[in-house]
Simulated assay, not measured.
Amino acid sequence: MRSAQANARVANIAARKQDRRRHQRVGVSLLGRFMLENRREYPCQVSDMSPGGAALIAPVTGEVGERVIAYIDHLGRIEGKIVRHIEGGFAMTLNATARKRDKLASQLTWLANRHELNLPEDRRHDRFTPDSSASRIILPDGREYPCRVVDVSMSGAALAIEVKPAIGTAISLGKMRARVIRHTEDGVAVEFGAVQNINVLKNQITI
C-alpha cells in the first residue's frame, strides 16, 4: 500500500502533466529585460511561451532553480524559476494566479494570430514622415550606424540604411527600443517594443 507521501507525489506529477497539456506553447519573438537573484538586469528575447512557462534567449543563463523577474513587451511583468538551460538561454516556469494565466492566454492567442496573418506591423496605425529624419541605430554589441527615417507609425518605422542587421535583431533607434522585422530595398523595417504615443515618437527616434 502506497504511503500518503507517495500518493502526493503521484498527484503532483499528474497535475504537472495536465498543466503542460493545458498550456500549449506559442512561438513568439518578444523583447524584454530580466533580473536574476543578484538583482542585475539583462536584455532578453522570448522565443516561445505558454501561460505556464517561457523560453528566453539571453546573454546569461542563471542557475536552475533561480528566481527570475522579467518585463516583456506586450505582456508586462512575469516571474518564475529557471527549470533548465537551452541553447542560448533558459526555460522558466511562470508563477501566476489563474486570472493572470487567463490574461496571458488571451495575449498569446492575439500574438499568435498576428503572426499567422503575417502582420508584423500594425497597419491600422497611420504613417508619417518626421520633420527631422536623421537618426541612428545601435546594435546589441554597441556598433552604431547612421540612418534616415523614411516613415514611422505608432508601431514601427521604415529606415534607409546601408547595413541590414538580421531579422529579429534587437536595436535601439534613437532612444527607442525596436527589432528588425523585414529587409527592404533601401534598408530595413523595424517594430517597436510597444505601441507608442506619436508626440513621444517625434522626440525619441531622431537625433
Rank of each mutant, 00 (worst) to 15 (best):
A158M: 13
A14G: 00
A178T: 03
V150R: 15
A96L: 09
G168R: 02
I171Q: 04
Y42C: 12
G62S: 02
R123A: 07
G53I: 01
P130H: 00
R40D: 13
M35W: 11
G65N: 08
R99K: 14
K202D: 06
Y42V: 11
H115D: 08
A8H: 04
S155K: 08
Q45Y: 00
A98L: 14
D126H: 06
T109E: 12
P165V: 06
I78E: 02
E191M: 12
P165Y: 03
S50Q: 01
H183M: 12
G65I: 01
E63R: 14
R177N: 14
H85G: 06
C44A: 11
A55L: 06
G65V: 03
V64P: 08
I138G: 00
T184N: 05
G174E: 04
P120G: 03
T129V: 15
E79S: 15
E66G: 06
P59M: 00
S29T: 07
A160Q: 15
G53Y: 00
G27H: 08
H74V: 03
R143M: 13
D73S: 09
S155W: 02
I138S: 09
D186Y: 02
A98F: 07
S155P: 09
G76K: 02
T206N: 14
T184S: 13
D131C: 00
G53F: 01
P120W: 00
N7G: 12
A14K: 07
A112H: 09
D19R: 04
H23F: 09
L75Y: 00
G142Q: 06
D131I: 05
P146C: 06
I167D: 04
L159G: 09
L36K: 04
I82M: 10
N203S: 15
N118S: 13
L173Q: 07
T97A: 10
D102M: 11
R20V: 07
H23R: 03
N113S: 06
R25M: 06
G52M: 02
G62D: 01
L94I: 15
I72N: 01
K100G: 00
H183S: 11
H85Y: 01
T129P: 10
L117Y: 02
T184C: 13
S47Y: 00
D131Q: 11
N113G: 05
K175W: 02
E185Y: 01
A11D: 10
A55E: 07
G168N: 05
A14T: 03
A178K: 06
I78V: 15
S29R: 14
G187K: 02
V26K: 03
L108S: 02
I171K: 04
A170C: 13
A170N: 10
G187M: 10
F128Y: 14
V68Q: 04
T109R: 12
M1D: 13
M154K: 15
V26M: 05
G53K: 01
A112P: 07
R182D: 05
T61N: 12
D102W: 00
F128W: 15
V26D: 03
E116Y: 03
R67Y: 13
I167L: 10
A58P: 05
Y145R: 06
L201D: 06
G52K: 01
A98C: 09
S172W: 11
L119A: 08
R9S: 03
K103W: 10
W110R: 14
L56D: 01
I82Q: 11
R127E: 10
E144S: 15
R2T: 11
V150P: 12
S3W: 01
C44T: 10
